[in-house]
Amino acid sequence: MNYSSKAYFEKIDRYLNQQMGAEELEVFEAQLKSDPGLQEEVHLQQLARQAVQLYQDQVDLREWKEMGKQLLTSQPVSRGAFGMKASLRLVAELAFLLILWWPQQPQSCQNLQLAQKYYSGPDTAPLKNAQGPASPESVIEAARKLFRKGRYEDAIKQLLPLTQQQQPKITEAKYLLAHAYFAAEKYGQAASLFAQVSTAKDLRFSAKASNMQAISYLAGGDLSSLQELVNQWLQSPASPEYQLAKDIEKHLFLLCPESVPSASAIIKSVP
C-alpha cells in the first residue's frame, strides 16, 4: 500500500484533525490497528504536524518579542488602561462613579417640610357675635369648636349643609370645611374646595386657599396637579402665588409621589 500518496496524506490529515465521519473513522482505525506501515505513517505525520507547530511557536515567539520591544519602548510607564496601578485605578473608578451618582441622588423627599412651611390653619378663635342657634355664624362657631377639639368629621357634618345654601358666610364655611377635609386627610375634596374658595371675592380666604390647594395636592401625593397649578401661577408673575410657585418649582425635584405626609404632621407644625 502506498501510504505516501496524496490521498493517504490527506486521509491521515483528516484523521489527525478529527474530521472523519463515523463510518470512515471506524474503517480507518481498524486498518490502523492491523497495519504497522500505516501506524508508522500516522506517527510520522503527527511528528510533522508537531514540527510545524513548533515552527509556528518559534515564529510567534519572534513576532511577539518584536511586538513586546515596541510596546516597551512606546509605553515606558504603561500600567494598564488608565496608566495607573490597579489599586489606584479602583480608587479612580470609585471616585468617577461617585461623581456620576452624586448629582442624581435626591435628598430625602421634602414633601412634609414644604407642606409644613406653607400650611396655614383656619381661624378658630371663638366668635363674639354668634346670632341664634341656627344662624350661619353659630354653625361656623360650633364647627370651629369641633375643629379645635380635633373632631374634624363632626365639623364636616356641621359645615356641609351650610356650604350648600346661598348665604353671606358661604366662603368662610367652605374655607373651614376645606380645612376640616384636609385635617381628616380627605385631600382630594379639600383641594377642590380650596380651589373654589381661591376664586372667591373675599380676599381674607382666597389668598390662603390658593396656598392650601397646593398643600392639599402635595399632601395627597398628586404631584401632577401640583405641577399644573404651579405652571399656571408661574405664568402671572404679578399674582400673590408667584413666590410660592417659584419655591415649589425649586423643590419639585425633591418631592416624591409616594411620600405622603400625614395631615396631623403638617398641622402640628402650626404653633
Binding site: E93, L97, P106, S108, C109, S224, F253, L254, P257
Partner: peptide, 22 residues
C-alpha cells in the same frame, strides 16, 4: 417631573455598579 425615585433605588444601583466594576 424630576423626582421622583426613592433614594434607596439610587443607593442600590450605585452599589451594584461598584460591585460589578470591582
Amino acid at each position: 417631573m424630576h423626582c421622583l425615585r426613592d433614594s434607596s433605588s439610587y443607593i442600590n444601583s450605585f452599589f451594584v455598579i461598584i460591585f460589578f466594576s470591582y
